[in-house]
Design a protein around this nucleic acid. Structure first.
Lengths: 137, 137
DNA sequence: GTATCTGCAAAACATTTGCAATTCT
DNA sequence: AGAATTGCAAATGTTTTGCAGATAC
């Protein structure tokens, strides 16, 4: 399905800015911050503003086209994969990796009448690469 | 054990500011932000500054006296319970609840050579109260 | 031509930094 | 006195806001 049709299917009008941003997200599954999106796209869209990136991501989140990741304070990241999965952030290279996990049926101690809408699981640690580099023992 | 001894046990010199902050955290298990801590303690310690709150929380985190919660962008919260447990944030009343959960042995799809150092699980939704209030059906 | 989208500049906020004043031993 | 702690004021960095100009149907 073409990108513009994905946007339309989520009730989002396909504009240049939105198509390019969504394209970036699904092409580079790298959980970018707003600033990273801006810097990555400014060459392609020289008139792009940070405001538009924020506007777009707010819209995408509302329309469920992306999910918003809050792993580290001061950096909101976006993920075009809205399915339920975990995130691993390497504290050394700062890369964020997706991982598959089923957290929908974890036994938890919450009262039964709490309504759970979103579930987030993230780990922090060292990825394979950085583990070897920083702990050369 | 007296608070000052808890601090000493974690290699933290017990000063008035530090004792009051730690006292607040274990007395009100309400996952306060830095600003909430500041506002809650300014009456008791009229010379208190936000800087000291930040300094203290950074020290406490480093010395493993508290854990830092990042659930929502733009609000870092602190929890004096450093054991492994989940957090539920009610999006209506903004309250954060602890819940008991065992996530140490969740089956995940990460490569075996990733070194996991921290695990965080949080849910968002509506607590019992707000569920009744906002969905009166 | 009207509604929506975009972008600039300024504002808002949380957090950090540099440095001076204070406190503790 | 000397080292650590504290607090002020200014700086930083991210996100938001108001509004004007551009774009689309």
């Amino acid at each position: 399905m073409a990108i513009k049709d994905v946007l339309k299917a989520h009730d989002v009008k396909p504009t240049i800015v939105r198509i390019k941003i969504y394209d970036y997200l699904i092409t580079n599954k790298n959980h970018p911050t707003a600033d990273k999106l801006y810097k990555s796209l400014i060459d392609e869209i020289p008139t792009l503003s940070r405001t538009s990136v924020y506007n777009t991501m707010e819209l995408f989140t509302r329309k469920n086209l992306v999910q918003t990741l809050t792993i580290e304070e001061k950096e909101t990241r976006f993920d075009a994969d809205t399915s339920c999965h975990g995130h691993f952030k390497c504290t050394e290279c700062t890369e964020v990796f997706d991982f598959q996990v089923d957290i929908s049926d974890i036994k938890h101690g919450l009262p039964a009448d709490f309504m759970i809408i979103e579930r987030h699981l993230y780990y922090k640690g060292l990825c394979s690469n950085c583990r070897q580099t920083t702990l050369p023992s």
